[in-house]
Design a binder for these strands. Structure first.
Lengths: 226, 226
DNA sequence: CTCTCATTCAAACGTCCGTTTGAACTATGC
DNA sequence: GCATAGTTCAAACGGACGTTTGAATGAGAG
């Protein structure tokens, strides 16, 4: 059972232990699903780019949708972990402010995922796309992966904004979720005047996060009904 | 040249002049594209639901993408017209406030399109989906349809918020665009606690519009960098 | 070496896709 | 009446899709 088998007949030095077929499939799936969406991306396009046989998808994952599910789970894991960690840390020091909560939610989605060389923006776009895929089935696949953390944030936000009605807090929360996904997916880059307003280098990720947080904080603090 | 020909061999009274094949195709395309996205909806599904032959699409429009383009143009026309009208009206009375501008932009997208019996939500969802379709090609197809009005709003918003940096105004604008599309597409209805926060009846459309406007006004007024 | 089992492979499966064809039908103009 | 042009139709086109198959290949275990 060669768990980390080398590619095919290629020459492989001992360093850089070469991604397994399974990892290559996940990486390329992230990229292609993020570019063209689930329906718009074929398994053949993925397997060709990953230098894998088309049957490898069904061997390693079982189906196209199972590949997507695995990719979503892998991409969301560090984001969810970081969000949980920040929330624990905040709550240990008493009632967090709305700004602290928003920051703890948005930054892991943008910051942590955008600054990591080549793959950061790829993962971010993938997550953003899946979160608002045209198919309800796909969206629910994403929701299932982030629901537990979401419930905690919703409760914490309500506590931080006691004057806001529960449905207003929920409204603000879905708006935060939506704007984050939109910026992650880079679908806004075609808007007028937004050529420079979006992310293009790792450096700008921080600016984008700060702008989005400021935008959301103002909206939460003064834009919700009581 | 029977411009408004009747269906097939069906019996048709003189009243309710029966939609033409072309109109039925556009109506069903709006519905299905809005439900499943462009890639996720087949011409066969559309033509079957429209009780039309599959060749009718290529006869009346030329291709699947041309059908989408025609549907987008038809759906956006009244929204653009109303936005232009409101902007003209506001500018005739001097410098509009940010709230007035946001209202003039958002309300035609939600209000005007949501309250019209059965078809309102269908059209809204269609527009929202196309605006953020996974395919850049499709998104640009939407952008081309709304670009002219967008430029005017961007300029007016900058004038209403002289202290905000141009890139911040653009940032707020794309956020407004994104949130509007998200609510139109009803993709947020699966979020936790949002069961009632979204639109379900025509009556709630007004509430949603007011909530969204309040949210955006607060963000524009206090959430943009100078 | 031999057995074992995980992995890869080329090839084919049946189905659905968008598009095209050419004939049939329909209503009007002359 | 016939001619004409707009429209609908069943059928087929080639190609791409997700999935399956069964044999080949690979590396460890005994």
């Amino acid at each position: 059972m060669p768990e980390r088998a080398v590619a095919g007949g290629k020459e492989n030095s001992v360093e850089t232990p070469v991604e397994s077929t399974r990892e290559r499939l996940l990486n390329i799936a992230e990229q292609r699903f993020g570019e063209g969406g689930y329906e718009g991306t074929s398994l053949r396009a993925i397997t060709v780019a990953a230098a894998a046989n088309i049957a490898a998808v069904n061997y390693h994952f079982g189906s196209k949708e199972a590949l997507l599910r695995a990719a979503v789970a892998r991409a969301m894991a560090p984001v969810n972990t970081e969000r949980r960690r920040r929330l624990d840390q905040l709550e240990a020091k008493g009632q967090p402010t709305a700004e602290q909560l928003i920051r703890a939610f948005v930054e892991p989605g943008l910051d942590l995922v955008l600054r990591r060389g080549e793959r950061g923006p790829v993962v971010a776009r993938f997550i953003g796309r899946v979160a608002f895929d045209p198919s309800r089935r796909i969206r629910e696949l994403y929701a299932a992966e982030s629901d537990p953390v979401e419930a905690r944030y919703l409760a914490a936000l309500q506590a931080a904004l006691p004057r806001a009605a529960p449905e207003s807090v929920a409204f603000g929360y879905v708006n935060m979720l939506g704007l984050l996904a939109l910026h992650q997916s880079q679908a806004l880059s075609r808007a007028p005047g937004a050529e420079t307003a979006d992310l293009d280098a790792g450096e700008d990720a921080g600016k984008l996060a700060e702008n989005l947080i400021a935008f959301l904080v103002a909206a939460f603090d003064r834009g919700l009904r009581s």
